[in-house]
């Protein structure tokens, strides 16, 4: 049954990708990409990767789509017909694809428990992490504890990308708060948005602090919280949103999150352990691990929230500037 569902979803995914190739209307292309992301999130659930599915649904389908639509508002929604030769790319793609499919024949069968990827460190994570780290969610244990240094790097990349977008586009000014914009005539939308934005923020907090026990964690929580504020900005207008959460505050928050993360590592150095070794943070190693993971997940959440929201502000500020002559 699982195979059947998997095949259906993969088939729908393939159709979506094919449609994207031939469409010239970029608005529809971006919407299809959102569908593509949701479908791949479903496939991730089917392949037992619930944390990944969660992230893909929030990030790929939510934030990516909003950012691409923001870009389309600035660059126009029609793709012009091109005069490229179409057979040459096709030839390259078919040749590469054939080579890759030939390569897959040497791979271990799908779902094989004796797959080399399942042999190396995975048994250690699966068998020992509930005792060593003390968390039911192995993904969180590996993410925050065993591979904590790696995750620090990823958080720094998100931070760096936010800085890159600032320097390319700049952040919107705060002082235009007097201008009332947004969807004034959509009364229903405004009422419902007011109703659900607090719920979304609450859910983000739940995801942040429940990530140790179920799917979730700092990355997802940061993105969901950012999505709540993005919804606010879309319905009530960017000036009001920047009045609530100022762009300068976001700059501080983005740096603060990375600082909390790296600071935890330094503290553990001073307490006599290795960098990001949480065992020394409390008297008991398990309590130390738990404390360390909560703190660094909080750092990740703050950075991701601030970076995603600041990137959205930068794009929305550009669009706003274009509208005001």
């Amino acid at each position: 049954m699982a195979v059947f569902i998997d095949l259906m979803l993969l088939g729908m995914l393939a159709i979506t990708a094919l449609r994207v190739i031939f469409l010239k209307d970029l608005f529809a292309v971006v919407m299809l990409f959102g569908i593509y992301s949701f479908l791949s999130a479903l496939i991730f659930v089917n392949l037992d990767a619930v944390d990944v599915a969660f992230t893909e649904a929030a990030v790929g389908a939510g934030i990516s789509t909003v950012l691409m639509l923001g870009t389309l508002a600035l660059t126009g929604r029609k793709e012009k017909t091109n005069n490229h030769k179409s057979w040459l790319p096709l030839l390259v793609v078919v040749a590469t694809g054939a080579a890759l499919i030939y390569g897959t024949l040497d791979m271990p069968p799908f779902g094989d428990p004796n797959n080399p990827a399942q042999q190396h460190v995975a048994p250690r994570y699966i068998q020992d992490s509930p005792q060593e780290v003390g968390l039911p969610n192995m993904v969180t244990s590996v993410l925050a504890s065993y591979r904590g240094f790696d995750t620090l790097g990823e958080t720094a990349v998100v931070f760096a990308a936010a800085i890159g977008v600032f320097s390319l586009l700049g952040l919107p000014k705060r002082d235009r708060a007097a201008i009332e914009s947004g969807l004034k005539s959509h009364l229903v939308l405004r009422v419902v948005a007011k109703l659900i934005i607090p719920l979304i923020l609450l859910f983000a907090l739940y995801v942040q602090f429940h990530g140790d026990y179920g799917p979730g964690g700092g990355f997802q929580a940061g993105v969901i919280a950012a999505a709540a504020i993005i919804l606010y900005a879309l319905v009530f207008g960017l000036p009001l949103a920047t009045h609530v959460l100022q762009p300068s505050l976001l700059k501080v928050l983005a740096a603060l999150g990375v600082l909390i993360y790296a600071g935890t590592g330094v503290v553990s150095l001073f307490l006599g352990g290795n960098f990001l070794d949480y065992n020394v943070l409390a008297s008991d190693p398990i309590a130390g691990q738990h404390l360390g993971i909560i703190i660094i997940e909080l750092g990740v959440g703050i950075t991701v929230f601030a970076a995603m929201l600041a990137i959205f502000y930068a794009f929305a500020g550009q669009a706003e500037r274009k509208n005001i002559p």
Partner: peptide, 18 residues
């Protein structure tokens, strides 16, 4: 299932959107 690819991809998705 193996948690390691999940961790790698989870972070890669967020870095990807950034």
């Amino acid at each position: 299932s193996n948690p390691l690819p999940h961790v790698l991809i989870l972070t890669a998705i967020v870095v990807g959107v950034a």
